[in-house]
Amino acid sequence: MAFDATIRTQYNNNGTREGWSWLDPFAAIGRMVIGWVNNLGAAAIFLALALWQAFRRKQFSKIIQQIYFIGARSLTIIMLVSLFTGMVLGLQAHHALRQFGAEGAVGSLVALSLIMELGPVLTAIMITARAGSAIAAEIGIQRISEQIDALQTMHINPLRYIVSPKIIAAIISFPLLTAVADLVGIFGGYLSAVMLLGLNAGVYWHSTQVYVVLADVTNGFVKSIVFAVLVATVCCYQGYFAHMRRDSHGAQAVGLATTSAVVISCVLILVSDYVVTSLLI
């Protein structure tokens, strides 16, 4: 009885613990943190093995297929979202800067906001919603219907066949879609500030050209690559290990894996955005 915590913790005849201890919340937090660290390590190894498999033969056509699915088929939604984001930025910037007589800076504000922050972040979130969820669900179903086990019995590495092309395709697609989102967003700002609110077109483009430097564009692409690795890894990992979830089984596990994939990806996009920005500034 050296420690008060042991006094109120008893065991019944079945060996099940009864009562509670003031240490229980800390134990729960500890278990959760250990779980996170374990998952983090497993995901890192998962990513490393998948990247290694990317350099094996017969991967090219699979990567092209995935670029089509993750990249080309996300183009419309990315363009639509970035167009309205640029338009609302142009509108807000014009409204705010007019009060200081600085309407001339609308172009640079819209362009820098998009290139440095909103372009990569919104693109990553939209791809997560469209392609990331589909990837997690597809792999999850392949897992619970034993298709992944079947690959192993056919001596086909599932990481090579299923996961690796998706991660490589994401790394290629994210920066390209980000570039499209930046351009369409800047054009959206032009539509609202110049076409609707009457700002001089020359002032808009001059301000954009003067204040945006190559480093801003590069930093935006660096972020998009980081987001690509995170989103693709999380979505593939959640689907791949859907059968090991403790909270559910079968189809329900696939559903929850898909939800987790989207939520974790979105949180990681925002957290890593801050970390990468602080490193790049």
Binding site: Q142, S145, E146, Q147, D149, A150, M154, I156
Partner: peptide, 22 residues
């Protein structure tokens, strides 16, 4: 496999050819 574990996104031909292709 008991439940066949065929790839549902591939045709019968592609399913059978898969081990040879890969």
């Amino acid at each position: 496999f008991q439940q066949n574990a065929l790839f549902d996104s591939l045709t019968v031909y592609d399913n059978i050819a898969l081990p040879l292709r890969e």
